[in-house]
Amino acid sequence: MITNGESQIEKLVAITPDGKVGSPCGACREYMMQLDKDSGEIEILVDYETRKTVRLKVLLPDWWGKPRFEEE
């Protein structure tokens, strides 16, 4: 993605080692937040059976890097 000049993700599904849907790890959440000023809006599937999704900003509240994008 990055090597192709892309920086925006709209939706994400993380698969755990047992084949189930899960949340991305903390390092991945942090990395995604740093990609783009709108990354907090990435929709993440957290429960396949109910189709429940959450926004990345909910999983990473009060992100330390937010002011970086506000300056642009």
Rank of each mutant, 00 (worst) to 15 (best):
W64S: 11
N4C: 11
L59M: 09
D62G: 07
G26P: 04
I15D: 04
R55P: 12
I9Y: 07
R29D: 05
E70Y: 08
R51T: 08
T16H: 10
G65W: 00
I44H: 01
G5P: 02
Y48L: 10
V46G: 06
G26Q: 03
E10G: 10
G5V: 00
A14H: 06
K11D: 08
R55I: 14
T16A: 12
E30R: 14
L60K: 07
T50D: 04
E10S: 13
S23P: 00
E6S: 09
D36A: 11
Q34H: 11
A14K: 04
E43H: 08
N4V: 06
E6I: 15
T3Q: 08
E72T: 09
L35F: 02
K66N: 04
E30S: 15
E72N: 08
I44V: 11
I2V: 15
T50S: 08
E72L: 15
Y31S: 13
L35Y: 00
E10N: 14
V58H: 12
W64R: 08
V21I: 12
Y48D: 11
E41S: 04
K11Q: 09
G19H: 06
E41A: 12
C28Y: 06
Y48T: 07
E71V: 13
Q8T: 13
M32N: 06
K37C: 03
E70L: 15
G26D: 05
Y31G: 13
T3Y: 12
R55Q: 15
W63M: 01
V21A: 04
A27I: 11
D62N: 14
E6N: 09
T53I: 09
R68C: 10
L60S: 07
E49C: 07
G26R: 10
E71M: 15
W63P: 00
V54C: 07
V46P: 05
P67G: 00
G5S: 01
G5L: 01
E10K: 12
R29V: 06
E72G: 10
V54N: 02
F69M: 02
E70I: 09
V54A: 03
T16F: 10
T16P: 06
D18I: 12
D36I: 08
D47F: 03
V13M: 13
R55V: 15
V21L: 09
T16D: 12
A14C: 13
R29W: 07
E71L: 14
K11C: 09
Y48I: 06
P67M: 02
G5A: 02
A14Q: 06
A14E: 05
